[in-house]
């Protein structure tokens, strides 16, 4: 797809190509003037003038298919070009396997573009063949582990075609590489939720896994969030799992003051209050003190938030004293 790059001296304008001489180019109807004065590069203008011409004539031909490639290369985000290309593929009965190769090449160049990924999905649906999707998305995620489009496509393929088997291994690797990769933690939840299920044993396994990762990097929002997510499936709640509470207390005793740890301790206190199971460790007084230390020392940028939460515990405290 590089045969029409700007640096390529052999580029011939469509207006100079004899095989296109039967067609009258259609310039852009620019709409309101001062808002929409178009200053195209000459090549861009030429390609899109001819694209508009085939669109207007509804021409379904091989040369039109070629032209859409040039148009895509100049602007892969133009959804009309992709839509028309799909119309052409259907009308011409083009070999879709080669189209898969083509869109893969475009994805490699423009991995953060809605249109290319959507085109890919439509092709996979037409072919009912998902054998290349895990590899394609893996490659994209190696380049950018948080690429939202790649993750969406991967989840879709996994869910639609039941490709869960090796996904946990893939997630493990990503988390090992970057323990703060929130997308990978989200994928972990996706696999647990849609495939392994939250049996008591799985809940315990996931808790242990997450605590290991927190031990490694304590100030990691993603892992702490995942821990809360797992504990949603623990009947004992967030305050009732002694592995979790003793882990937190140990961190605290070892002088860890990560805002996520302190916030977690506050949540344990709140649950204990709500369940009327307060004790010397988990009560309104401690929660209030934690809020104050977050507001004044460990998470100052969110001091308004922590003061607000602190107020809640002050009220609990009052009702405790009644």
């Amino acid at each position: 797809m590089s045969d029409s790059g700007d640096s390529d001296v052999s580029w011939i304008f469509y207006k100079d190509r004899p095989e296109w001489s039967d067609l009258t180019p259609v310039p852009e109807n620019d709409g309101p003037k001062p808002v929409v004065v178009i200053a195209h590069s000459e090549k861009f203008e030429d390609v899109y003038d001819y694209f508009r011409a085939i669109l207007q004539n509804n021409e379904k031909s091989e040369r039109a298919l070629q032209l859409t490639k040039d148009a895509v290369e100049l602007n892969p985000a133009n959804y009309t070009v992709w839509q028309y290309r799909r119309d052409l593929l259907q009308a011409l009965g083009t070999d879709l396997k080669s189209e898969l190769d083509y869109v893969e090449a475009v994805i490699k160049q423009s991995p953060k573009n809605y249109q290319v990924w959507h085109h890919r999905r439509v092709l996979v649906e037409w072919l009912k063949d998902s054998s290349l999707e895990l590899e394609l998305t893996r490659d994209a995620l190696l380049q950018d582990p948080k690429n939202y489009h790649a993750w969406q496509h991967r989840q879709w393929a996994i869910k639609t075609f039941g490709l869960f088997d090796k996904e946990m291994e893939f997630v493990d690797n990503l988390i090992s590489e970057d323990v703060r990769n929130n997308s990978a933690w989200n994928q972990r939840y996706f696999v647990m939720n849609n495939h392994h299920g939250w049996t008591d044993m799985n809940v315990q396994k996931e808790i242990c896994y997450t605590l290991e990762k927190i031990k490694f990097v304590k100030n990691n929002e993603s892992a702490w969030n995942y821990l809360r997510g797992v504990l949603l499936h623990d009947k004992k709640g967030i305050s009732g799992n002694t592995i979790v509470t003793s882990f937190c207390e140990e961190l605290y005793l070892n002088k860890c003051r990560s805002p996520y740890l302190l916030a977690f301790l506050i949540d344990i206190c709140e649950e204990a209050i709500k369940k009327e199971e307060t004790n010397s460790l988990y009560n309104a007084q401690r929660a209030l003190e934690l809020c104050q230390s977050l507001a004044t020392k460990y998470d100052k940028i969110r001091s308004k938030y922590w003061n607000f939460i602190g107020e809640k515990f002050r009220k609990y405290q009052k009702s405790e004293n009644i």
């Binding site: 852009e28 001062p34 808002v35 929409v36 004065v37 178009i38 200053a39 195209h40 590069s41 861009f44 203008e45 899109y48 602007n75 985000a77 133009n78 959804y79 009309t80």
Partner: peptide
């Protein structure tokens, strides 16, 4: 969009 050399601008027709 009044700037004739504004390539960015024509890229955003879509």
């Amino acid at each position: 969009g009044l700037n004739k050399d504004d390539y960015e601008y024509c890229m955003t027709e879509y």
